[in-house]
């Protein structure tokens, strides 16, 4: 019997990161996972909620977790967006505090019951599927493509909330890439912030942060960057046009979702992988 996970796509996966949605769904189907989208899911509240109203920020993911546990009767939810994942994990952490829990239950209008595991994009492949099962599904392995596994901020920080293996130098994504034939490179910007939350208001800052991450990946031999966050992907991908304006010699770095790498290796169709949706072309890296 296949395993069923609740699925919370989040706003980005229905907009700027449609290729993360379609590639993730495509890989899940091939890997024996059934995804059940949470009915009427709402925004997780993102940075704007926790910088404005902490209670609402905690209540929004709690409302989704109540639906998963009580209405859908499931014990795990896949949350491929790193930003949404971080808000879900923050809610689980904060619900340990009795007063917060009482306030949140009042806002949600229903009792909250712990016990739903929240899986980010890396977790789904590493923990839910597992490396051996993933390897067994590979039909088109990569031939040692050098890839920098980029985590950014929200998959690992803060570790007391995300329960990450290692907040400074996590390696589960590298292990997934290795399982499909890529060669993950050692590099230093793996958990650096790309500044995506400032994307609409502090361009100069953002371009510098992006450039520093991309340059470090290049300097460490990477031919592409794998990422697991829709905000990082859009930021790292689209800001290279700004870098080119001041540096005509700039060599673009393809920014590929982990689900696209996995999907390409296990035979998900090109249209589901959404390879045409990128600003910097990714077809050559995935050829």
């Amino acid at each position: 019997m296949s395993r069923t996970l609740a699925y919370y796509p989040g706003c980005s996966l229905h907009g700027t990161a449609k290729e993360l949605d379609s590639s993730f769904v495509g890989t899940a189907a091939k890997l024996g996972l059934t995804l059940a989208e949470i009915p009427g899911w709402e925004c997780c509240g993102n940075t704007a909620a926790h910088a404005t109203n902490r209670l609402l920020a905690t209540a929004l993911p709690a409302n989704e977790l109540v639906k998963v546990k009580t209405d859908m009767q499931l014990d795990a939810v896949a949350v491929p967006c790193a930003a949404c994942f971080s808000r879900f994990m923050a809610t689980i952490h904060e619900m340990d505090e009795p007063q917060t829990r009482a306030d949140v239950e009042q806002v949600v209008g229903r009792p909250y019951e712990a016990g739903v595991a929240v899986r980010n994009l890396v977790d789904v492949y590493y923990d839910e599927v597992g490396l051996d099962a993933l390897k067994a599904k590979v039909v088109r392995p990569f031939n040692g493509l050098k890839v920098a596994a980029y985590y950014g901020c929200l998959l690992t920080r803060p570790p007391k909330v995300t329960l990450a293996e290692d907040p400074e130098y996590p390696t589960h994504m590298d292990a997934v890439l290795k399982a499909i034939g890529c060669e993950p490179v050692a590099w230093s910007s793996k958990t650096d912030c790309c500044g995506a939350s400032l994307a609409l208001c502090e361009q100069a800052v953002v371009v510098k942060l992006v450039r520093s991450i991309l340059q470090n990946a290049r300097d460490c031999g990477a031919e592409a960057i794998a990422c697991a966050c829709p905000l990082c992907q859009v930021n790292l991908d689209s800001r290279q046009a700004d870098i080119r304006k001041t540096d005509p010699a700039w060599r673009d770095v393809p920014i590929v979702y982990l689900s696209q790498f996995v999907g390409r290796a296990i035979g998900v169709s090109d249209s589901e992988l959404g390879l045409k949706k990128h600003m910097v072309p990714v077809e050559a890296a995935l050829a």
Partner: peptide, 8 residues
């Protein structure tokens, strides 16, 4: 940016 490096 709320990157949480300081918090970590």
């Amino acid at each position: 940016t709320g990157c949480e490096t300081c918090t970590t």
